[in-house]
Design a protein around this nucleic acid. Structure first.
Lengths: 137, 137
DNA sequence: TTACGTATGTAATAGTATAACATTAGAGGT
DNA sequence: ACCTCTAATGTTATACTATTACATACGTAA
């Protein structure tokens, strides 16, 4: 194989299945469901749900993607490093999901956590909104 | 029927299925899964998943229970009124779930929302923790 | 009474996720 | 180069979660 040399320390360790799943999520930018991913990647050789779920699990573990719990979907992480903490807005009308990457949020959450004496290891915040384009219509 | 008179304006409107599901969640205090609820209430006459899901949907809509998204479970609401906003701590070790009912949190969230210019309709916050009894061991 | 919205019962099926097991690939040590 | 160990793979079957579709009943208001 001529690929898989020493290009990217980070992605180098990914296996083929992990890589193609990550690429799909990256290209899409939207939350995708496991079985949709499976269908999309059948031509790349994926043939069973478990292959997808295993890749997804690993990518979540590596912090490269997140699970949007209330949508049973997975989305690329577009923070440099959120250490498995997640915060999304989800449009109630069109379903559009955006990861919130704002230092104010991190600050705010930390404060929230301090004030409430929560001893947290990580968090998942889902804010339901009506997005701009939906509000206009 | 001698029950179902005019005792409680709030619960009066609940149907039988809704009432028995609510009671089970109330008595339990823990998050329960739909099919567990079904099994538990077979003797009360429930016989299909749909009966449970319909009752759960209604109770969620009424704000009497919440769905814990990342657990696919439902838990009684122990705030007087959270208007479909939810905030939980979930112990990563034992799975214990507690609803956070702290005015600081509401305040904090509001501030968070203001600072980040989020135009939210509701939110769902899941804080993963290691609870006290798990930390000791 | 009629009409309408909501809840019910039942069966079938869709959608999400994991268990179990045998095999293979890759990184590190010697 | 070889051994070894861990992690990933492939495959089948199955478990778990949730909804569609349709026929029926109930309750309230016109």
């Amino acid at each position: 194989m001529s690929s898989n040399h020493t290009h990217n320390k980070k992605n180098q360790t990914l296996t083929k299945n992990q890589r193609i799943v990550l690429n799909l999520l990256q290209d899409s930018g939207e939350p995708l469901k496991a079985y949709f991913i499976l269908d999309s990647l059948k031509k790349e050789g994926l043939s069973s749900p478990l292959q997808v779920y295993r890749a997804l699990d690993k990518l979540v573990e590596l912090g490269k993607i997140h699970k949007v719990e209330s949508l049973n979907s997975f989305i690329i992480c577009n923070n440099s490093n959120c250490a498995s903490n997640t915060a999304f807005t989800i449009c109630e009308r069109c379903g559009k999901v955006k990861e919130i990457k704002n230092n104010n949020l991190t600050e705010g959450v930390n404060e929230l956590v301090r004030e409430n004496k929560l001893n947290i290891t990580r968090y998942n915040l889902e804010f339901y909104v009506v997005c701009k384009s939906c509000k206009i219509n």
